[in-house]
Nucleic acid binder design. Sequence first.
DNA 1: CGAGGGCTTGAGCCACATCAAGAGTAGTGG
DNA 2: CCACTACTCTTGATGTGGCTCAAGCCCTCG
Lengths: 244, 244
Amino acid sequence: MLQANNFHHALEIANVALLGSEPNCLQALFRKLPIEHLATGQSLFFEGDAAKHLFEVVEGDLRIFRIISDGRRVITGFLHAGDIVGVSLKDHYLYSAEAISDTKVRRFSRKAFEAEVSNSPELRPEIFARLRDEMAAAQDQMVLLSCKDAQERVCSFLLKLLRRHPGHCRSGAVVELPMTRLDIADYLGLTIETVSRTMTKLTNKGILVSAGRHCVRIIKYGTLVQFSGDDEYDGDGMIACAGR
Amino acid sequence: MLQANNFHHALEIANVALLGSEPNCLQALFRKLPIEHLATGQSLFFEGDAAKHLFEVVEGDLRIFRIISDGRRVITGFLHAGDIVGVSLKDHYLYSAEAISDTKVRRFSRKAFEAEVSNSPELRPEIFARLRDEMAAAQDQMVLLSCKDAQERVCSFLLKLLRRHPGHCRSGAVVELPMTRLDIADYLGLTIETVSRTMTKLTNKGILVSAGRHCVRIIKYGTLVQFSGDDEYDGDGMIACAGR
DNA sequence: CGAGGGCTTGAGCCACATCAAGAGTAGTGG
DNA sequence: CCACTACTCTTGATGTGGCTCAAGCCCTCG
């Protein structure tokens, strides 16, 4: 299932070699590892597989999702360059991960990672910070799914993408949507038709204009924020806007 | 807002005194601390407050929730005896916490807690395990809110409560529902009327019988599982059923 | 230029929300 | 002990947002 199985042994050795170096940030842990390439649609791992590795997303985007008993798919998040997947893993992956665009990742042995983190007091706060961010994102998503209507969900989603790039939180900014409408629908707990209709409505209201299938330009940022149904005030100030 | 503010200084001293003792499990950390009592409906802390403490629930139940801009409430979880609240906190509480029954808690300084965990290699895996469980629960909740219908939500909820007591996962078991219907509704993303109607329907189908306002007896456990819409198979075997 | 996949748009329907009333239960005070 | 009150829960009637089903459009790519 996991590609490049023959590759792992070499990586283990590379990981072990890193153990003495005491890197002071997570990214540094991964820096020396070879880059693996994923084509659009290719899987990184599957829900239920033994969780032997963590990954750093170097470039591109991934969707993480679960398939439920009736065959439907729930996307629980998207990952982008700079994100690390697997920090919150149990023995088995809780979800599947697939590339939604051409993507580059670095693979790290889970065992070596845990040893590394356990030995490095500098790294632990960073791990905890990422876990906390992940929890906060999950909370926000629960609020969205619990009680936002279609328009609020779509606006919240667009804002979330905007906020990944500080300085893009303003009218005139352009949002890239690397995922398909179906991905967005499965993430927002809507159908593809409702997402499409909602985008059209937002366009008719003059809040955004389409700029190709995977791109929209925000015309009225303030209105978008209002429509998102979030409180303007955020407990941690602008931290939510500064990205991870 | 937080009660017993005059009490904190003494606690800090108690916490510091613990630092030398190297406890080997989280519960042990809290064991020596005085118990604080919360009456039904009383708040433990509020969303946005500076997160200065963690709490161990010794007895009783809490709801954790957020109030959104239009005044609606989203309950993101319930806490029970043995749970620890605050492991995943940022500088400020992400949610409010209120007692839903008479509740006893122990309070631990966040700073001392972090020092303790940082000094104790035995404690860290336990912390991570709790964070992972919290993440897994959040994922499950997202799946529930994304695509389960009312009946599936209510059945999943009842099963979740049952699974807190190993051995109760069978026909004839009794489930305590310390929270109100409104709490359940706000947790499941439904209205109080829909929760009530769904419970009635399940009763009419012979799956459960009411045993007072805060108590139901499960008659057909297997059917309840089927109706919950979860896969029978769980990646980590019976772990999900063994409670925290 | 044709085929297939992704997206948009329309019509009708259904599950759940909303609105409204009434029944059951706990708590209070005389 | 009972009456009064307030709250929780249940049940019914009606409304509606988003889902389902269906068709057509628009890219992209061979």
